[in-house]
Amino acid sequence: MTRRSTAANAGALILLCAAATSAQAEDGWSLTISPYVWASSLDGKAALAGQRTHIDIPFSEALEHLDLAALGEVEIMRGRWGLYLDGQYVKTSQDEELLSQELALGITKVNAMAGVFYRIYDSPQGGDTVTGEPRRFVVEPMVGARWTKLKANVEVLGFSTSKKADWTEPFVGVRSSLDLTDRWNLSGEADVGGFDIDDRRSANAQAFVGYRMHLLSRPAMLRAGYRVLYQSYETGDFTGQTFRWDVTQQGPVVGLSMDF
């Protein structure tokens, strides 16, 4: 699938979701779409085919080798219940030299989080936001699953090979949001997962400052903050050796949320 067709399909899906949600607005449904950019670095340890290495990739180097990135979140809510999907697709490539021969290395990393949350606490803060909603302080426990896929492609001396690993882990967490003024908002989220089931552990935390406004006549919010994702996973690989991924991904985040 080409980048153009992927973008067209994504745009069509967004328009379809928006139309469906608008038609159901009287029933209390809401849809929020949030594309974002995560300027993340990687730090930790990895092992494949018995070879262990330390990973230390600052964002400046990751950006230099970036081919394609798509990151975003979709949230659907009705009443106090809500469902969300957060997806990240990052593809990088680079050329290295091995024994005086050129080696091409491509890495694709996919993360997808799906969760259900419940608004257990909702406290009015007085007055309305600039988009017409009451100012609130809310707390929402959540539960869900996180799926990760890693794929590496190597080409050297006319030969190529591709190896991959993927795993899924449950998580529990909580998120909250506070309207400071009619425009400014403060939000945060944290969760832990894996629980050492089959050597899987993870932790995710993020905090944002948001600015409410109208965009294309729709309620919207610009957000800026910081996110940290730690993952640890270990299993046997295709050589009978140990595959290990024990890495922290972190960095600033800038995004836009629109309500439909």
Score class of each variant (00 low, 15 high):
Phe260Val: 03
Leu66Gln: 04
Tyr89Gly: 02
Ser40Lys: 04
Leu31Trp: 06
Gly210Ile: 01
Trp245Met: 03
Asp191Phe: 01
Glu97Trp: 09
Leu16Arg: 12
Gln88Val: 10
Val192Arg: 10
Arg200Cys: 04
Lys149Asp: 12
Glu96Phe: 11
Val254Pro: 01
Gly144Ile: 01
Arg183Gln: 15
Ser34Asn: 12
Asp27Asn: 11
Asp198Arg: 12
Asp27Tyr: 10
Ala18Arg: 11
Ile55Gly: 05
Arg119Thr: 12
Ser176His: 08
Arg136Pro: 04
Val228Trp: 03
Trp245Ile: 00
Ile120Ser: 12
Ile76Pro: 09
Arg119Gly: 04
Arg212Gln: 13
Gly188Gln: 08
Lys163Pro: 00
Leu105His: 04
Cys17Ala: 15
Gly173Arg: 03
Ser160Leu: 07
Trp147Ser: 10
Asp259Glu: 15
Ser202Gly: 15
Arg183Glu: 13
Ala220Gln: 04
Thr6Met: 15
Leu150His: 11
Gly87Asn: 09
Arg223Met: 09
Ala19Lys: 08
Ile57His: 06
Met221Tyr: 01
Gln101Ala: 12
Val247Lys: 00
Leu13His: 08
Leu42Asn: 06
Ser5Asp: 14
Glu64Arg: 14
Thr6Gln: 14
Tyr121Val: 15
Gly255Asp: 07
Leu71Ser: 13
Asp166Asn: 14
Ala19Cys: 13
Arg201Pro: 00
Leu103Ser: 07
Ala224Tyr: 08
Arg200Glu: 04
Ile33Val: 13
Val228Gln: 05
Lys109Ala: 12
Gly126Lys: 02
Arg212His: 08
Leu216Lys: 09
Glu64Asp: 15
Ser41Met: 02
Arg80His: 13
Ser217Met: 10
Phe208Ala: 00
Asp191Thr: 01
Leu31Cys: 07
Arg78Lys: 15
Val116His: 08
Tyr230Val: 02
Leu66Pro: 01
Val130Arg: 00
Arg119Val: 06
Ser34Lys: 05
Gln206Gly: 10
Ser160Thr: 11
Gly194Lys: 03
Glu75Gly: 07
Met1Glu: 14
Gln125Leu: 10
Lys109Trp: 10
Gly79Ala: 04
Glu73Asn: 11
Ser217Asn: 12
Lys91Trp: 02
Ser30Pro: 03
His65Glu: 07
Leu66Met: 10
Gln206Cys: 03
Ala203Asp: 06
Gly106Cys: 06
Ala18Tyr: 01
Leu13Gln: 13
Glu189Trp: 05
Ala7Glu: 11
Ala7Trp: 08
Phe137Asp: 05
Gly50Cys: 03
Phe159Asn: 11
Met77Gln: 15
Val192Leu: 12
Leu66Ala: 05
Val154Ala: 10
Asp122Ile: 03
Arg223Asn: 13
Thr131Asn: 08
Gly50Val: 00
Val154Gln: 06
Tyr36Val: 02
Val90Cys: 01
Leu66Cys: 00
Glu64Tyr: 09
Asn111Pro: 02
Arg146Gln: 14
Gly127Asn: 02
Thr131Lys: 03
Arg3Asn: 10
Gly82Leu: 01
Tyr233Arg: 03
Val138Ala: 12
Tyr233Glu: 04
Leu229Asn: 12
Glu61Asp: 15
Tyr211Ala: 05
Trp29Pro: 02
Ser232Thr: 05
Val154Tyr: 02
